[in-house]
Nucleic acid binder design. Sequence first.
DNA 1: TGAAATAATGTAACCGGTTACAGTAACCGG
DNA 2: CCGGTTACTGTAACCGGTTACATTATTTCA
Lengths: 345, 345
Amino acid sequence: MMTRRSSSVTIRDVARQADVSVATVSRFINRNAPVSQTVARRIQEVMAALNYVPHATARHLATRRTRTIGLLLINMHRDFFAPLITGIETVVDQREYSLLVATIRGGQRKNQPAPVGTHNTDGLLVFADSLSDDQIIQLYQRNFPVVLIHRTAPQNAPFPCVTVENKAATRKSIEHLIEHHNRRRILFMRGPLHQEDAHWREVGYKTALAAHGIPFDENMVLQGDFEREVAYASLSHFLRNGHPQFDAVFAGDDDAAIGVLTALKEAGLRVPEDISVVGFDDLRLTPFLSPPLTTVRAPTEEVGRAAAEQLFHLIEHRDTESMILLPTEIVYRRSCGCDYSPDLL
Amino acid sequence: MMTRRSSSVTIRDVARQADVSVATVSRFINRNAPVSQTVARRIQEVMAALNYVPHATARHLATRRTRTIGLLLINMHRDFFAPLITGIETVVDQREYSLLVATIRGGQRKNQPAPVGTHNTDGLLVFADSLSDDQIIQLYQRNFPVVLIHRTAPQNAPFPCVTVENKAATRKSIEHLIEHHNRRRILFMRGPLHQEDAHWREVGYKTALAAHGIPFDENMVLQGDFEREVAYASLSHFLRNGHPQFDAVFAGDDDAAIGVLTALKEAGLRVPEDISVVGFDDLRLTPFLSPPLTTVRAPTEEVGRAAAEQLFHLIEHRDTESMILLPTEIVYRRSCGCDYSPDLL
DNA sequence: TGAAATAATGTAACCGGTTACAGTAACCGG
DNA sequence: CCGGTTACTGTAACCGGTTACATTATTTCA
């Protein structure tokens, strides 16, 4: 026997009590059609008396809008995501939408639908490789609003993208090491395979090397994966086994840089005296590392804001930018060898 | 003219194509009643062919369950929340639920409903003071599943709570400063007003002082608010104006500790030679600060997991713990004055 | 003054699922 | 061989809102 959970008071209850039709109540609530003063007041009172709250789900079904957007991430534990979400929240909030956050747990069965998508949101923010090209194309074919973050659109799914400038900044940071700190044997920690940020940073690295006549050497590339632990493990392993000389390392991102600093310290190498280190992102903590980390500042919160804004443009059928590339900028601290006066808060 | 967005394929389309009733399709999807092999296969194929995805909202309306839980935070920018969310995600995910994350933007109009609540979730995880006692009591009266995180339940709303041990750990860390590092003039940075963690840490501080015959001095208390910037500002101000002597500071939490370290460095004070510093939380970054931070490890990810689990117990009408108090433990690093061999990753 | 526009409201058909209830066919024990 | 299960399927009434369309009362204006 199914016990009807009658607890909830519905729009019909209100209508009955206020002696009007449900349509009128609905109109009053949504203020999308005129309702007479008298009736309005009566409905108002009844609603208060019954403590009526419209059932969001029912409304969603009827309107086909959820007033919710989804954010799909790879995982949640990187500090990197905090400012991203903050940025997104700002605009989601201002639009009086909700934010559904989901991560693709390691691999995730391909046959099962993403935890967030057409069925429960009005639009999706997709970070890097949290969705495959195929999945993105499908969404495009269904005409579903999506904005890509830290990746560009696949050929057949020209969704707006928001990302940061990687190549020039990386190149510049490498050239800084070469020109100002006289480094020439620069280790490069690669980011996750197929990730665009990782790709362009590598291109920037190679470009800088080439520009200074330094031959690229695959042995100078380690896997860092933008993960503290992975970077630590790679570099430790590298240090333990007979390895080519090096005098600097570009860590890929700040998280990996922490792993790098740890491994170097453990091996008794001094930063920046023996080895220069540079990161990428400028996480909140980087000024406080030891030594303070020279890194590339990525405007992550801004990325979140911009992406969310584009998504709303899409949802509201307004014009969108096909690509927003936010500028990055090098922050010189101590780890590269520069003199450094601490950032005051 | 409202254009019906006919794009979506419904269960009726599937039923028609597969030449069965919608009920059968529904049963097949939910596997809650037997369906013959033949029919099952046919439905399966049609679903694949049509690329059918059940409409979550419709399902929610019919079942009165959203398969979504909400997390209400104060803000998003504290690194502290990353592990918390990770923990929650783990179990939400395993239950095949979604997670709706919302923050109460500065103050937020009291009359307007929380962005997340009875209308769009099956249960709520409420962090610290993100909801007022009154709001919590209302939820209780409506019989809505809620688990409180880092706070205890109000008198009339005995919801389960999950939090960490604050007082004993704080006391112990203060006593460590006194006994092992011979500090007696210990500054205390207070957390946010009315926050329970803040309260108990203060009690722990006072208890330790009392136990060692050190009189409590209100002038030795600064506002830190668990915020890097606030702590920095408070301490800087304190240092600039003639201030009582001190030889240690309990920062309240790790975020504030960063502000403390910054202010001290700026003032030319050495840590730990001149001043000992201890934090609270053991954020991922603390081992990498300079100097590595002595702090209290709070099992934040575990808190998230436990809270989510309790919430599901509540939702499923299973027994719950009225209170889960997770143990904390001091991690001695360098900032208090201890010798320290770096945590290897 | 009469026709047309406007305001205020009601009726009922949706939205896209779930499920109580009913019915039929095959199966089972005595 | 028959009453009672059990397996499978269909019909139609929900869930709680929104809204197209119809209706009536009230203005507005030529």
